[in-house]
Design a protein around this nucleic acid. Structure first.
Length: 423
RNA sequence: GGAGAGUUGGCCGAGCGGCUGAAGGCGCUCCCCUGCUAAGGGAGUAUGGGCUUUAUCUCCCAUCGAGGGUUCGAAUCCCUCACUCUCCGCCA
């Protein structure tokens, strides 16, 4: 949610900012609603004030034993008028909220213009692409004989699920362990375990609801619970409706969870393999920081994710998403894309976003700034560190040999119980 | 699943339908006193919104788990829901 004050004080700037997003904001409609809101709110509060004063004087008269009937008659007319005004006001406010919560975050000034992923800007590359003397296989072919099975998963559940067994299943667990250990021991994140089902308020807080309900799996509960699409949702909502003590800032959480996405808008994309699944494992990094430190925190968090790729010696590139590719709640997003020899392409393995106060305003997540003594909205920053399923794919494809075996990267060996090669 | 108790400010805790945005205590901040420490005295200490505004103060509205209702007036009465705790049952 954007700051409503800004809409009142500088609508022009709002329009300019939203144009960058190609978000068609109807300023005339907004202004009409806003002026109505102002008039009705003032009227309502005046009536409330009148009622409060009269009621108080009735109380005082009664205490003195005076006849209160004339006073009661005086207040008679107020009731209906007030009720009407209050109803109208709450309707207007609801409309206003609906309008505001559908508006995406402003883009950071450094975000390049552009329509889709083709317009993203490459920031850097790291690592040497592996050179094979044979034709590189993709993870589906490599996994076929090693316990990666899509048919069984389809039987058990449906398409877009995978079953992993044996050393390959262990490899994914090893990858997760490496990430958790690195982020807790070397990067200073606090290990966090959370519910995998969340309520609508939490999804609203991070921006998935109300706009993107179709991307979610909804459990048949009352009130509704949803499977988390990312640990970002439960973890960030830890600070919903909280005023964080300055001493505790910044908060840094790392959390491994499965993620569930219905991928409703992605039919036909990445149908082969486990690139795009309804369920996948991910390690998520979340930081709750003050406004002043958030830009730096975003850079650092992205580096923390990059460190995992470096440890695994996986070639990757860092990309700054363009206007059209930056998510609804984000003001600026870096994607990390890992090299997949099987596809001959870089593919997203992490997405690190800076939300500024957009999520915090929805969540009423604040901290007390010692300089002012006042509660101020926090800034939220998060990123995958990394998507474990895709990391597994990347390890398989980058560490394959001519016999179709997968070699275990050096850093993962301590977690593999003596396995060095998956045959 | 069954039975009971509860939800008030940063925390603890009071609160006959009107003078309670809320006693008292703790904590915190500032001041005084005391040659350190301790003890003592005084003042302050919720959040959101509106109006206005360069900005602030005053002012106005809302908020005592959430939502409805009764009433001129609700923290206080009624209804629904959520959550927490205790005991029993079940359970990894």
């Amino acid at each position: 949610m954007l700051d409503p004050q800004l809409f009142r004080s500088d609508l022009n700037e709002v329009k300019i900012q939203l144009d960058r997003r190609s978000y068609d904001f109807d300023t005339a409609a907004y202004e009409a609603l806003e002026s109505k809101r102002k008039a009705v709110q003032i009227k309502t509060q005046d009536l409330q004030n009148e009622r409060n004063k009269s009621s108080k004087s009735i109380g005082q008269a009664k205490a003195k034993g005076e006849n209160i009937q004339p006073l009661l008659d005086q207040v008679q007319h107020l009731g209906n008028q007030l009720k009407e005004a209050e109803t109208e006001l709450s309707q207007i406010q609801q409309k206003m909220t609906e309008l505001m919560e559908a508006i995406p975050n402003f883009l950071d000034e450094v975000v390049p213009a552009g329509k889709d992923e083709d317009d993203n800007v490459e920031i850097s590359r790291w690592g040497d692409l592996p050179e094979f003397s044979f034709e590189a296989k993709d993870h589906v072919d490599l996994g076929e004989s090693k316990g990666l099975n899509f048919e069984v998963a389809a039987k058990i559940a449906s398409a877009r699920f995978a079953v992993l067994q044996g050393p390959l299943a262990r490899l994914q667990r090893a990858i997760i362990q490496l990430m958790m250990d690195t982020h807790t021991l070397e990067h200073g994140y606090s290990e966090t375990y959370v519910p995998f089902l969340v309520n609508a308020d939490s999804l609203y807080g991070t921006g998935q609801l109300p706009k993107f309900e179709s991307d979610l799996f909804k459990a048949n509960n009352d009130p509704a619970l949803y499977l988390i699409p990312t640990a970002e949702v439960p973890v960030t909502n830890i600070v919903r409706d909280v005023i964080v003590d300055a001493k505790e800032m910044p908060l840094k959480f790392v959390c491994h969870t499965p993620c569930f996405r219905s991928e409703a808008g992605a039919y036909g994309r990445d149908v082969r393999g486990m690139i795009r699944q309804h369920q996948f494992e991910k390690v998520e990094l979340v930081q709750i920081v003050s406004e002043k430190k958030s830009v730096k925190a975003h850079e650092e968090l992205t580096n923390h994710a990059e460190n995992i790729l470096k440890k695994l010696n996986l070639p990757y590139r860092k990309v700054l998403l363009c206007a059209g590719d930056t998510g609804f709640s984000s003001s600026k997003t870096y994607d990390l894309e890992v090299w997949l020899p099987g596809q001959g392409k870089y593919r997203e393995i992490s997405s690190c976003s800076h939300f500024k106060d957009f999520q915090a305003r929805r969540m009423q997540a604040r901290w007390r700034n010692p300089e002012t003594g006042k509660p101020e909205l926090v800034h939220t920053v998060n990123g995958s560190g990394l998507a474990a399923g895709r990391t597994l794919i990347a390890v398989m494809e980058n560490y394959q040999d001519e016999q179709g075996r997968v070699h275990i990267p050096e850093v993962l060996k301590p977690y593999m119980g003596g396995i060095e090669i998956i045959e």
